[in-house]
């Protein structure tokens, strides 16, 4: 007889070997909080939406702009800011809608493969949102740098002074440092996500690949 069939024979008679859970225990269980990864993905995603919105509100509020950039280029920055906000809130709305749609689709009663793919899709939506924000952050910084160089006399003269005092190389170096710093932030954020979702979805991704392999 095949090994597995031996197990099968015993399997059916095996119902008495488990400690039986009582009705009261089940009642208390269903009122406990779930630790499922879907719940964590939801929580983290909401935090992400909130976080990036707070950043953009703080970063581009009127008062902050005036203080940081001075009166001279205030109007320019304000205009950029308005465009920024229109794009930003449209995108946020679209992402939240997509996220909600994907999240709603997750159901434990579908097939295992479908369930996994729905979860991964939900998570991808948020990842795209994060990348969008990083890109937006980088582009925004570059645009502002451009405006400062061209329209802000104080900033331009500062750059000119660096240039005159220490030469062209130092100016390049300063700009290089700014860009390098931005790159560093991007890498840090990327690593942070790798870590969070790696912990959360490591097992799921592995099992998903395993299932996909069967159907290759």
């Amino acid at each position: 007889m095949e090994e597995l069939d031996l197990l099968k024979k015993a399997w059916k008679k095996d119902n008495y070997s488990f400690n039986q859970v009582t009705e009261n225990e089940i009642y208390s269980m269903i009122h406990k909080r779930s630790s499922s990864i879907v719940k964590w993905i939801l929580i983290i995603s909401i935090l992400e939406f909130v976080f990036w919105n707070i950043i953009s509100i703080l970063y581009l509020g009127d008062g902050y702009i005036r203080k940081k950039y001075g009166n001279e280029i205030f109007e320019y920055i304000k205009e950029i800011n308005t465009i920024y906000n229109i794009i930003n809130y449209t995108v946020v709305a679209v992402f939240i809608y997509l996220f909600y749609k994907n999240y709603k689709r997750i159901s434990t009663t579908t097939s295992t493969k479908q369930l996994m793919s729905d979860i991964l899709k939900t998570r991808k939506t948020v990842i795209y949102y994060v990348w969008f924000n990083i890109l937006f952050f980088v582009v925004g910084t570059l645009v502002i740098l451009y405006v400062q160089l061209n329209y802000d006399s104080k900033f331009a003269s500062l750059m000119q002074k660096i240039h005159d005092d220490t030469g062209y190389m130092t100016l390049c170096k300063s700009i290089g440092i700014i860009l390098g710093f931005m790159l560093l932030i991007v890498i840090a954020i990327w690593l942070f996500y790798k870590l969070i979702y790696g912990i959360l979805l490591g097992k799921l991704s592995k099992n998903y690949k395993e299932l996909q392999k069967i159907d290759l």
């Binding site: 630790s35 499922s36 990864i37 879907v38 434990t108 009663t109 579908t110 295992t112 369930l115 996994m116 979860i119 959360l200 097992k203 799921l204 099992n207």
Partner: peptide, 18 residues
């Protein structure tokens, strides 16, 4: 039948060992 499907999905997909 319904229960084992949900249970399998939970074990394979949603559950993280505490």
């Amino acid at each position: 039948t319904w229960a084992y499907r949900v249970a399998l999905n939970t074990a394979i997909t949603l559950y993280r060992k505490s």
